Simulated scan of single mutants.
Amino acid sequence: MDQFVVKRWFCHDDPATPLINECTQNIHWYDITNVTVWMAVAVLVITLLMVVGSRGRAVIPTRLQSVGEVIYGFIHKMVEDVAGHDGVKYFPFVMTLFLFILFSNLLGLLPKSFTPTSHVAVTVTLALIVFLFVTLLGLARKGIGFLGMFWVSSAPLALRPVLAVIEIISYFVRPVSHSIRLAGNLMAGHAVMKVFAGFASMAVISPVAIGAVSAIYGLELLVAVVQAYVFTILTCVYLKDAVGDAHH
């Protein structure tokens, strides 16, 4: 589908071949694409909300300041409840992840926009950042003791090596499940909307198709928020492994 195609921003499409043309071929890392543009837009919106909107710090907050304070309090409480008191010092990292994913998801629902988080390349990068951050933090704080999380001491001795292998595999699979969950849900929702929108041109079923698209769009708004929340709370769970005491 053309809505998932990465293309150069400063390039004109050929209407005859919208999916295969010079705009989509031989894209280099330094090219400005629709992905980078909409990620930049997400960063700009976050800056306007959290920096410009809260700049006054009024006792009676403005609407923007109220939204920023609600998000701040919600994520801060999540980090404290899930990762514990020691995890609160890494709140800025978690907050940044949540805001970036949330606004990337929401902006992708605008007409003619692009959803960066519907691409596995973007979500894998985010998941790998979380994975490497948590792993390096755990090794820095606990040293070799961090590896103790893979040894289930409460299990029978004969089962411990088997469980250790399972724990190691599940640990290194985290970036895969973490990233595919986000990209898959967003891509599926956009694809379904695209399919139903295609039926809207058919006079016989257009009212049903338009109603279905409207309902799915409302569902996608919810999915955009929920998936940002799920990615963030899983990050907090992983962070707890690095800063909390292991319980087996």
Results as ranks from 00 to 15, higher is better:
Val173His: 03
Pro156Ser: 06
His12Lys: 15
Val37Ser: 07
Ser104Val: 08
Asn26His: 13
Val94Tyr: 01
His28Leu: 13
Ser118Phe: 06
Lys112Gly: 09
Pro156Met: 10
Phe131Met: 09
His85Arg: 15
Val67Gln: 03
Glu22Met: 07
Val37Asn: 06
Trp9Cys: 02
Trp151Ile: 15
Met39Trp: 04
Ala183Leu: 01
Arg57Asp: 02
Leu97Ser: 14
Gly148Phe: 00
Leu44Asp: 08
Thr17Ser: 14
Val43Phe: 08
Val204Met: 11
His119Cys: 00
Ile233Arg: 09
Phe103Lys: 07
Ser170Ile: 03
Thr17Ala: 13
Ser170Met: 04
Ile144Phe: 01
Thr36His: 13
Tyr90Ala: 02
Thr36Gly: 08
Val52Ile: 10
Asp2Arg: 10
Leu136Pro: 00
Val130Leu: 07
Val192Asn: 01
Ser66His: 06
Val195Tyr: 13
Leu132Asp: 09
Phe10His: 13
Ala212Ser: 14
Gly68Met: 00
Ala200Glu: 12
Tyr90Thr: 06
Val120Pro: 00
Leu110Val: 12
Val52Thr: 10
Leu234Cys: 04
Arg181Gly: 11
Ser177Trp: 12
Phe98Cys: 07
Tyr72Gly: 03
Val204Ser: 10
Val51Asn: 01
Leu136Asn: 08
Pro15Glu: 09
Arg8Gly: 09
Ala246Ile: 14
Lys112Leu: 12
Lys7Phe: 08
Val176Lys: 05
Tyr171Glu: 08
Ser214Leu: 12
Phe133Ser: 11
Thr232Arg: 01
Ile233Lys: 07
His248Cys: 09
Leu126Thr: 05
His28Gln: 13
Ala228His: 02
His76Ile: 01
Asp86Lys: 14
Trp9Pro: 09
Gly211Ile: 06
Arg55His: 13
Gly244Tyr: 08
Gly189Leu: 07
Ser153Gly: 15
Gly87Asn: 07
Ala140His: 09
Ala215Asn: 03
Leu239Asn: 06
Leu157Val: 15
Ile180Val: 15
Arg55Glu: 00
Ala191Thr: 10
Asp13Pro: 11
His85Cys: 05
Ala164Cys: 13
Gly73Trp: 07
Ser154Ala: 14
Leu107Arg: 05
Pro175Val: 12
Thr123Asp: 05
Val152Gln: 10
Phe196Leu: 15
